[in-house]
């Protein structure tokens, strides 16, 4: 198994999760990295990604795990090949070779985002923003408020950093942006939001996905 840590940026923020997966599939094939295939009638490349983000959000911390039974390439070579054959909106930053599937999709339960604003008074507007903030979320039945899914907040002169529940229990970043704009009068645009890291929180301890991988990997490469 090899897990590649990559970023999705530029106009790639408008490429859906399914289409990113399709692009990854083609990148691996162009790069000549021999990923295993499923055994069914409609064979597909064995690639695993973590949960999707809403369209419009840049991602500096994406992961894809590829099942490569006979990995003769080093982690560094995999990163180099990926970057040689990648589409313009994806770029590999690191790779981790593991014996087993690290099951990131099942373990990641939080994501940290940076929300940016050009409004010079944004920090003043957000002075009362804290993890206790009740977020108004739109649902099929109307609106509801949710609480307890914001884990950390830090107000910055140009916006905010927030850590939100992500995974099976999820607070979407677009819901938070909308709620902040309605509640605090900010002007956050989803297209200016960036996911900084994917996190695993357990018993009060928070580790990044990269730290998780570093613990279990047999080989790694992290580019400068």
């Amino acid at each position: 198994m090899i897990t590649i840590n990559f970023s999705r940026f530029g106009d790639g923020i408008f490429v859906s999760h399914v289409d990113v997966l399709r692009s990854l599939n083609r990148t691996f094939r162009r790069a000549g990295i021999d990923v295993a295939y499923s055994k069914g009638f409609n064979k597909h490349m064995s690639l695993k990604m973590t949960q999707p983000l809403p369209l419009g959000v840049a991602d500096e911390d994406c992961y894809v795990t590829a099942d490569i039974p006979d990995l003769s390439l080093s982690a560094k070579q995999c990163v180099a090949l990926f970057n040689e054959f990648r589409p313009p909106f994806l770029e590999a930053k690191a790779a981790f070779v593991t014996e087993k599937n690290p099951s990131l999709a099942g373990r990641i339960n939080a994501s940290k985002y940076l929300l940016r604003s050009s409004d010079p008074s944004v920090s003043e507007k957000l002075k009362n923003f804290s993890p206790d903030y009740e977020v108004t979320v739109r649902t099929a039945d109307g609106e509801k408020t949710v609480k307890g899914l914001i884990y950390e907040t830090e107000v910055l002169p140009y916006g905010a950093e927030v850590t939100l529940a992500f995974g099976n229990v999820n607070l979407r970043i677009d819901s938070l942006c909308r709620s902040l704009n309605d509640g605090f009068g900010t002007d956050f645009a989803l297209t200016e939001a960036v996911r900084i890291s994917q996190l695993y929180r357990e018993n009060g301890v928070t580790r990044t996905a990269r730290e998780l991988l570093e613990e279990i990997c047999t080989q790694k490469y992290i580019s400068e």
Binding site: G10, F14, R26, R30, L55, G56, P87, P88
Partner: peptide, 26 residues
């Protein structure tokens, strides 16, 4: 891509229709 479209791309269906940037673009 036409940068003027960017603010509207999260409001339209399948925004990837308008962004270009395909692999092999000359």
């Amino acid at each position: 891509m036409d940068e003027r479209l960017k603010p509207f791309l999260t409001e339209v269906e399948k925004p990837a229709r308008y962004i270009g940037g395909e692999y092999n673009t000359p």
